[in-house]
Amino acid sequence: MTDHTPERPGTAAQAPVLATATQPSFPTAPPTVPAAATAGPQRHPRKLALIAAVTVAVLLVGGGITWRALADGDDPMSHVEVTGGKITESENSLLEDGEVCDDADEFTYNDCDASVAYEFIYKITNEGDEPANYAVIVNGFDEDGEFVGQSFVSATHLGPGKIDADTGEFGDYAELAGDHSVSDIASVKVAHVERVSLAN
């Protein structure tokens, strides 16, 4: 007999096997979508060309109308003329015959002074196809061409082809620039014309 007892084969201790939970499998890339599903609405070249052609036509027609309106002299400034121009003086017309003006009131305005004005002739011609109202600004200038002041004239319900001609003036109550007086005005020009067409 030997000192060592032989070990029985196949009886050696073995490490326990740990049970592992089954992990769910995940896709490594997103699923592919067919190209037909991602494509946007299809554009038709013929339809785009038609839209572009219509847009160009509209722009050309609009430009033609504008050019024709300008060519026909539809600028309201061309409807107004101012001519002449002179300084006028007039005595106080409120006095009775034989009454002497003593300017005894409390106002600073001297009633006895002669009234000084710069008068001019204006002519407004309605060159449109419908009745219209006109509002006109006339600028006054001195001999050096410097601005002196403004006056306003107008015409109401002026029929097509009709003319309104009258006398305009820069009077005692005109708003003047700086230290200018009415007597400084040497010439006048039309500065602005507002024309409002009327339905009837």
Score class of each variant (00 low, 15 high):
T2P: 03
D3V: 12
R8T: 14
L18F: 10
T22Q: 13
P27S: 14
T28D: 13
A39L: 00
G40Q: 05
L50E: 10
L60V: 11
V61A: 02
G63S: 15
I65D: 02
A69E: 06
D72E: 14
D72W: 10
M77E: 09
E81C: 07
V82I: 02
T83R: 06
G84R: 11
T88D: 02
T88G: 01
N92C: 03
S93C: 00
L94S: 08
C112H: 06
S115A: 11
Y118L: 05
F120W: 03
K123F: 05
T125P: 01
E130D: 14
Y134P: 00
V136Q: 04
I137A: 14
G140S: 05
E143Y: 03
G145V: 07
V153G: 06
S154V: 12
T156I: 04
K162R: 12
K162Y: 14
I163W: 03
A165E: 15
G168I: 12
E169N: 15
E169R: 15
D172R: 15
D172T: 14
D172H: 07
L176N: 10
A177L: 14
D179T: 09
H180T: 13
S181C: 11
V182T: 14
S183T: 12
I185E: 01
K189G: 01
A191F: 04
A191I: 02
H192T: 13
S197C: 03
